[in-house]
């Protein structure tokens, strides 16, 4: 099927036999939605224009359109167009799921209901533009399942609300939480060796994106092994092994880079292990040790001598 490039984006162009047969089948299924074939082609062109770069090969494009969730896409677009029958089907299939997903995400019934209702309003399209309802369902492109999309949209909404609430937390609440006089983020008292930072950046840049994702998810986001494994669809022991391997690889590469930059092995290892917080702890420990010593022994001896 020859590609049709318009303004640097790909469209469905000449429809392949497979896609043609799928569309014919889809038309039969979605006849009750009232979507015409031309409308379906327009939707597919829109999806292709959004996701397919100009350099996409014919095979990739065919694969792309073959992987689209056409039936769910048609339902979503029919709903967005205000088709009653489509809404009935949508409600039947997804309304209960929507609230279940919201309950799972929010972990609290009232918040979950509020979250789901809010999204439901967006899906229905309460706002209008130029006299037309704007439904959030028009942004569904059929790349994943409609249920998964609803889940992601709910998660986005939840995260946005959570962050908004964090930003708008009252001073009283902050005080109760003990963060009213929280210090600003600490800067290292001792500037780090720039060679170490460069070596670390270099080592991180050499890692595959998925490894960096695993590192960030586990060490920065504090996700569990199971959560990361579920996202990547692997077993959690795989994640565990990968994390151990990454830690070893990173250490080895940083040390190697540092030694190439003129550091001895010992210097490189010390540079990698030095941490300002560790230094502070050492100072505290030494202070505590001094506190156990006898107070002013010399002065006490002098006073005793004066009395005598």
């Amino acid at each position: 099927m020859p590609a049709t490039a318009q303004n640097g984006v790909q469209s469905v162009g000449v429809i392949s036999p497979e896609l043609e047969s799928r569309m014919a089948e889809l038309q039969l299924k979605t006849q009750e939605y009232g979507l015409a074939r031309e409308e379906l082609v327009t939707i597919l062109n829109e999806v292709g224009a959004k996701y397919l770069p100009p350099e996409t090969s014919e095979r990739e494009r065919d694969e792309f359109f073959a992987n689209l969730r056409l039936e769910e896409l048609a339902l979503a677009r029919a709903c967005a167009a205000g088709h009653e029958r489509a809404w009935e089907i949508f409600m039947l299939r997804y309304r209960e799921k929507l609230y279940d997903i919201a309950a799972y995400i929010a972990k609290e019934s009232s918040a979950a209901r509020e979250l789901a209702d809010s999204l439901y309003a967006d899906l229905f399209g309460t706002s209008t533009r130029e006299g037309k309802r704007i439904s959030k369902l028009t942004s569904y492109m059929g790349r994943g399942s409609l249920e998964g999309w609803l889940r992601t949209v709910l998660a986005q909404e939840y995260v946005n609300r959570y962050r908004k609430q964090r930003r708008l937390v009252s001073l009283d609440e902050e005080s109760e939480a003990g963060v009213q006089f929280a210090a600003a983020d600490e800067e290292p008292a001792i500037p780090r060796d720039t060679r170490l930072e460069a070596a670390t950046d270099q080592a991180l840049a050499l890692l595959p994106a998925e490894d960096r994702f695993v590192l960030a998810s586990y060490h920065l986001d504090r996700r569990t092994l199971a959560e990361i494994a579920r996202t990547l669809r692997v077993h959690e022991s795989t994640i565990s092994r990968r994390l151990n391997k990454l830690a070893k690889t990173l250490r080895k590469q940083i040390l190697s880079t540092l030694r190439r930059q003129g550091m001895s092995r010992r210097q490189a290892e010390e540079a990698l292990q030095v941490d300002v917080r560790d230094l502070r702890l050492n100072i505290r420990a030494s202070l505590a040790q001094e506190a156990n010593a006898k107070p002013f022994p010399d002065k006490k001896a002098e006073a005793q001598a004066g009395e005598g």
Binding site: R151, L154, A155, V159, F213, L215, A216, A226, E227
Partner: peptide, 22 residues
């Protein structure tokens, strides 16, 4: 996407929160 996720904690959170029940 995974390149973005490795740098974006917000999207990592969304993906994680949107995961179906285990």
């Amino acid at each position: 996407v995974i390149e973005h996720l490795s740098q974006c904690s917000e999207c990592r959170e969304i993906v994680s929160v949107a995961q179906p029940e285990m």
